[in-house]
């Protein structure tokens, strides 16, 4: 057991827990923030993506000890910030089942933070690591361009 402290969506959390527990399960089970999804558990699909100090991180393979002293943002935190990406996703009617979309949005938001006007190629390169089974890719691409116009 270890004392682990981090900021999540602006709130400081201090937890006494096994440092090896994956951040995903801490966020979902201990903190009750279920917008971050489990899907592959091996950093293969991106459904669990959160931001750690602004960078996209796959929480399913990240030990909670790795975020000690750092700042974590989940989809709930991003949604509170009224990020233009949410409106773009709604305008493009992106989601089908919606399960992968929090991870898609976190991945896309991190891309836009680094590259405010990404090309199709830039988008494909980053987003091809984020899997969707429903077939929303072309709408995701459009939504990112739309959000880029407004970021």
């Amino acid at each position: 057991m270890a004392q682990i402290s981090f900021i999540i969506n602006g709130q400081r959390k201090s937890l006494d827990m096994d440092p090896d527990v994956r951040l995903l399960w801490v966020i979902r089970d201990s903190l009750g923030l279920t917008g971050t999804k489990y899907s592959c558990g091996m950093s293969l699909c991106g459904a669990c993506t959160v931001h750690v100090d602004g960078d996209p991180v796959r929480s399913c393979v990240t030990a909670v000890s790795d975020v000690d002293g750092r700042e974590v943002t989940t989809i709930e935190g991003l949604a509170e910030q009224n990020h233009p990406i949410h409106q773009a996703w709604i305008e493009e009617e992106v989601s089908q089942c919606g399960y992968c979309q929090p991870g898609q949005i976190m991945t896309a938001a991190a891309l836009l933070a680094k590259n405010p006007k990404p090309s199709d190629k830039d988008i494909d390169q980053t987003m091809s690591r984020a899997l969707c089974r429903c077939g929303t890719y072309q709408r995701i691409r459009r939504a990112i361009h739309r959000a880029a116009g407004e970021v």
Binding site: R28, T74, A79, S95, G98, Q101
Partner: peptide, 16 residues
């Protein structure tokens, strides 16, 4: 549409 992208939709795995 909005609930699916702000983390508020409760899927089976999220149910508690």
């Amino acid at each position: 549409g909005a609930a699916k992208i702000d983390g508020s939709v409760i899927y089976g795995l999220d149910f508690k």
